[in-house]
Design a protein around this nucleic acid. Structure first.
Length: 107
DNA sequence: CCTATGGCTTCGG
DNA sequence: GCCGAAGCCATAG
C-alpha cells in the first residue's frame, strides 16, 4: 500500500533538527505541488506527533500554522532545536528552510 | 456519488 | 502588511 499519508510522514521524519520546511514543499516532494492543504490535514491527523516531527513544518511565509498539541508547544520545540520564533513566525525562515532534493525517492 | 474537512498558497486590492 | 477569494486534493462518512 502506497498511501499519500505514509509518504508525508516519511518526508516529515527526514527534516533534520534545527531546520524547517513548508507544507507546500512536502506537497512538491510528493509530486503534487498543489496538495499543500492535504498535507496540513494529514499532519493534523498525525498519529505519532513525537515520532513524526510535524513541528518542523510551517507555512510558506514562516508563520507557524498550527499544532495538535497546542501552538505554544510547537514554539518551544522549535526553539529548543535552535529555531528562533517571534510573533508566531519563524525568524529568518529562509536560513532554516529544508528543501527536498529533486531526485528524492520514497522507499 | 456527494459533502465536509484541513496545520495551505497565491494573487489582487 | 492585512484580508478575502479562489484553487487544490486525498480521506472519511
Amino acid at each position: 500500500m502506497n498511501d499519500v499519508k505514509r509518504n508525508v510522514y516519511e518526508l516529515t521524519k527526514r527534516i533534520p533538527a534545527g531546520r524547517v520546511t513548508t507544507y507546500g514543499e512536502i506537497a512538491r516532494a510528493l509530486d503534487k505541488p498543489r496538495a499543500a492543504r492535504l498535507v496540513g490535514k494529514i499532519l493534523h491527523d498525525n498519529p505519532t506527533p513525537i515520532i513524526v516531527p510535524c513541528h518542523r513544518v510551517v507555512m510558506a511565509d514562516g508563520s507557524l500554522g498550527g499544532y495538535q498539541g497546542g501552538i505554544h508547544k510547537k514554539i518551544k520545540l522549535l526553539e529548543s532545536e535552535g529555531v528562533s520564533i517571534l510573533d508566531l513566525k519563524v525568524v529568518n525562515v529562509k536560513a532554516h528552510l529544508f528543501l527536498y532534493p529533486d531526485n528524492l525517492v520514497l522507499r
